[in-house]
């Protein structure tokens, strides 16, 4: 049965792109190693063979050049998917992203659309050190004019990619390396799941309840969804019922879903692999305080990466990034406190 077909997140992304390229001749892909290699993280696997080098373009290591070119192509009737290999590389090309891609529609008073998808790999946990392990979604989400999506599983990865390609706005599509199901990353059973073959959209801006619960809400995104689910399973054995809200999109942020869950559970933990200060965790907590203050029975708590560069050595990195154990400890402390 097609409905039971299982794919890894990486293959779900590649399938989504292939289906949209098949349906729409204006969709094309460019970036470093997206062609013969199929994307360092496999997001464009098989596309070169299927669509040829005019629509699957390997670029020089020239992010300002090819991201800017994506903008120009998008303005002129194309729907480019442009890959920034690691989000950490934004430093060499951020002007094109936040000053140009994200602002042209606004500056033009809505007359010029930039229907472009910027895909990028995020996240750590495999000792790739401080320039290849960041998530940085809080920074992208902070800057107006680009939607930001972060799928945590194969089903959402496909649906969000199709929605992103069809969206008339710039969408930053951040895939966490740990949820892709790559053979060369730590095995993650949650990185494989049922993915319908026919194209479908997962709406941008809608969170999903990844696990229902009643005692505490854990709001998170990306690989931390998996860690939170693992924590929730163990907490259940202790009689604690945790609800996991997978934001899926940071922009637009599903504030209603955050407040609705907090109104139900009265407790909030935010798990964010991004740096702690000035980021997603603060935004989610503020949302709950603004929208569901009277429902909160305890101060919200966050489990995040501290405000340090991501360290290399395994014990350092494992300590720094949110873990199942840290999430459990946070929930236990919160519930003991009442």
């Amino acid at each position: 049965m097609t409905g039971e077909r299982k794919l890894t997140t990486q293959k779900a992304i590649a399938e989504a792109i292939a289906q949209e390229m098949d349906a729409d001749p204006t969709v094309f892909v460019m970036g470093e190693d997206v062609g013969v290699y199929g994307g360092i993280f496999g997001a464009t696997e098989g596309l070169l063979d299927e669509f040829g080098p005019d629509r699957v373009k390997d670029t020089p290591i020239s992010e300002t050049g090819f991201i800017g070119a994506g903008i120009g192509a998008a303005i002129h009737g194309m729907r480019p998917i442009v890959e920034l290999m690691f989000v950490d590389f934004f430093g060499v090309c951020m002007d094109q992203i936040y000053n140009n891609m994200a602002k042209i529609h606004y500056f033009s008073g809505g007359n010029i659309k930039v229907p472009m998808v910027l895909t990028t790999a995020v996240g750590g946990g495999y000792s790739d050190a401080g320039q290849h392990s960041q998530t940085l979604w809080g920074m992208f989400a902070h800057l107006p004019g680009m939607k930001v999506v972060v799928p945590s599983n194969p089903y959402d990865a496909k649906g969000l990619m199709i929605a992103a390609i069809r969206d008339d706005n710039p969408v930053v599509y951040m895939f966490h390396k740990g949820v892709l199901g790559l053979g060369w990353m730590t095995n993650n059973p949650r990185a494989t799941g049922v993915v319908p073959e026919a194209p479908y959209e997962v709406p941008i801006g809608k969170a999903a309840i990844a696990r229902e619960g009643s005692d505490v809400t854990i709001v998170t995104v990306g690989l931390s969804v998996h860690k939170a689910l693992d924590a929730a399973e163990k907490l259940a054995e202790e009689g604690v019922s945790a609800e996991i809200l997978d934001l899926r999109s940071l922009v637009p942020l599903d504030r209603e879903a955050i407040c609705a869950s907090v109104e139900k559970t009265h407790r909030l933990i935010v798990v964010d692999e991004d740096y702690q200060s000035f980021g997603m965790s603060g935004e989610v907590i503020t949302t709950a305080i603004e929208g569901a203050f009277d429902y909160l029975d305890a101060p919200p708590v966050r489990v995040t990466t501290p405000d340090t560069p991501i360290p290399y050595s395994h014990p350092l990195e494992a300590w720094a990034l949110p873990s199942t154990e840290r999430i459990m400890r946070a929930a236990q402390a919160m519930l003991v406190a009442g």
Partner: peptide, 8 residues
């Protein structure tokens, strides 16, 4: 770079 993309 935007001009390059327009030309693409």
């Amino acid at each position: 770079p935007v001009a390059v993309g327009a030309a693409m």
